[in-house]
Design a protein around this nucleic acid. Structure first.
Ligand SMILES: [Mn+2]
Ligand SMILES: [Mn+2]
Ligand SMILES: [Zn+2]
Ligand SMILES: [Zn+2]
Lengths: 133, 133
DNA sequence: GTCGAGAACGATAACCATTATCAATAATAA
DNA sequence: TTATTATTGATAATGGTTATCGTTCTCGAC
């Protein structure tokens, strides 16, 4: 149903060729660097259209919305408060329990978002180095 | 450490006397209706200060940040896509599993947010009524 | 009690992510 | 070809939040 215009194809390619969690602004810069200068409004519209078509998926992270490939299976995210890095995980127990909770509340679940915040392994190592004088 | 000024006390009271998940604007209107006309900047600053002091807790819901009492135990939220209502739940299995995942990834978790989206029981009932002509 | 430093306040400007507007262009259908 | 419709890009507008700044409040030192 979605029309894959040159601009939308460029956006989709950029996202599919990486494992990043892109926001609109970052994507605009990357596309510009790659030779595609696409208006920022077109990028926002393209992202919305591609998400609705199921070709990419999104997460809400604090203030901004971030997009990633949709060809990987569902997963949730560990977000580092120090460096901003995002790790992915999947836990079937958690997924199951969510369905269980929803059914308990007679709630027709159609999605969820689980963010775990903290400090990633890398940042922990760095902070340990820094502490010992 | 936090100084509970008249304005901050009014904000805190309003939140503590209810079970709502308040955003800044809603709170400003409610306070104004209750006779406290507090500048919107002061409300934002007050909410930030009260949260840092642990007197209220916050969740990020899409675009806006919402605040609720902190005297209730930790819980997560079921958010209705149709009416916007928020139900609360707690599931120890999910909490446990999160800790497990974090430790697997050597990730020092210091918080999390789980939002389950869908249609609440009420809205389901209403939509069924609407469907049968 | 007076003084002064620092905290808090309120009005408002600024910020930033996102969406709306609109004229120009491209694609599609008749 | 011509009419219709969708898409684009520049830019204005929106909405939530934060920054600025002059004024007011608080409170301990004197
Ligand atoms: Mn991901
Ligand atoms: Mn709650
Ligand atoms: Zn990190
Ligand atoms: Zn509902």
């Amino acid at each position: 149903m979605i029309k894959l215009t040159a601009q939308r194809q460029a956006i989709l390619d950029m996202i599919n060729q990486s494992n990043q969690h892109w926001d609109a602004e970052l994507l605009a810069r990357a596309l510009s660097d790659a030779g595609h200068s696409i208006g920022i409004a077109t990028i926002y519209r393209g992202l919305t259209a591609l998400e609705k078509a199921g070709l990419i998926q999104a997460i809400h992270l604090g203030d901004k919305k971030r997009y990633e490939r949709s060809d990987k299976a569902h997963h949730d995210h560990l977000v580092c408060r120090s460096c901003g890095s995002i790790e992915e995980f999947f836990d079937e127990h958690i997924e199951q329990r969510q369905r269980h909770v929803a059914s308990q509340y007679r709630f027709q679940m159609d999605g969820h978002q689980l963010l775990i915040f903290g400090i990633c392994q890398q940042c922990l190592k760095l902070s340990m180095k820094g502490e010992q004088s």
